[in-house]
Design a protein around this nucleic acid. Structure first.
Lengths: 188, 188
DNA sequence: CTTAGTTGTGTGTCTAGTCAGTCTTTAATT
DNA sequence: AATTAAAGACTGACTAGACACACAACTAAG
């Protein structure tokens, strides 16, 4: 061993990438990200082998943070509906209150250099939410559909609701509730 | 007047762009698109001032085609539910049977160089579908929500269902129906 | 004193858009 | 119908700039 890598620097690069990609899109230069993070161009590549590698790790970090936030403090003793509602509102609150993270995540989600493995891993991070969903729909009209299908629909609703909330922040809370009720009608 | 521009060439460029962007993403070089279209590098720029201009026109063309396909042959005498179901199935059928167009459209939809004006124009192309939606929800639980909000949710469901249908073509028809029923429960 | 992180300049590659010269079409004139 | 002139589309080599990543020199940790 010799000089160790610094977690701070890794975080700084990730944080910088979020800001820069949110404002410039995926075409953002690694040099710009490095500068924003306060490290040299070259150092970025000791923490991330390639730009694509950075993108993939960033994608995972954000997805994991999103899922964790949704489930943090979940009232596991309450009814399944209450639990789902809790996760939903925390999920959308995270997304609307971190617009840069959300913007960046949206870009990454459709990027060609996120590998299938990363998409898979991201989906695993959502296991907790999928479990809630499974219990929510178990007696509902979609009980026979593939869970992954129902999860896609839920995810799509969350994305769309978030977009709308960001565009119309004054009524954000209302939109969140309306979308949850819509989801519940759909699955339960 | 002198030598007129050829509609064929414009179409060839648009068609080539669909193919190339579907396979290489938005980073595709204009030279690649021109070659695929069988025109010279330079000619592309007599039909489209800039690459961004090409992207915007392509986006509009695709959105318009999608909306037109959904409403083509609409049984205007039938119940509103039947009409909506008709539009829904045609919409999803177009998207699943033109995977390159769909892939390209998905890329463009989140691209930074689609102008707000283009997004606006694309939304106008959906006026017919929005009208169906308005009538569908007029006595339903979302009657008080902004129509644009409900439209976003519907659009999100359509996108998600399409993705799933492409990944699991054997059960495509089933997924389409399941998603429509989900939509209907949500709004009507 | 060895190992490995750090730096920033360097480099090879790639790309959007340009341009000088050429070719095609249309319209006017004979 | 034949000739001519003007407009402007067509071409592909070219340019100017950007970018991901390599590297040689240097520095800090153990």
């Amino acid at each position: 061993m010799a000089r160790p890598r610094s977690d701070d620097k890794r975080s700084a690069i990730i944080a910088a990438a979020i800001r820069v990609i949110a404002s410039e899109g995926l075409g953002a230069a690694t040099a710009t990200i490095a500068k924003e993070a306060g490290v040299s161009n070259g150092s970025l590549f000791t923490y991330f082998e390639t730009k694509a590698d950075l993108m993939n790790q960033l994608y995972l970090d954000l997805k994991a943070e999103m899922a964790a936030t949704a489930l943090e403090g979940l009232p596991t003793k309450s009814s399944i509906r209450k639990q789902m509602q809790y996760a939903w509102s925390h999920w959308l609150r995270w997304a609307t209150s971190s617009p840069e993270k959300r913007r960046t995540l949206a870009q990454l989600a459709v990027s060609d250099d996120i590998t299938p493995a990363s998409h898979q891993a991201a989906s695993n991070a959502f296991a907790g939410i999928r479990e809630l969903l499974e219990r929510s729909r178990e007696n509902g009209p979609m009980r026979a559909a593939p869970l992954a299908f129902v999860a896609s629909l839920m995810n799509a609703l969350a994305e769309a609701a978030t977009d709308f909330m960001i565009r119309d922040p004054a009524n954000a809370e209302e939109h969140s509730k309306a979308a949850f009720n819509a989801l519940w009608r759909m699955i339960a």
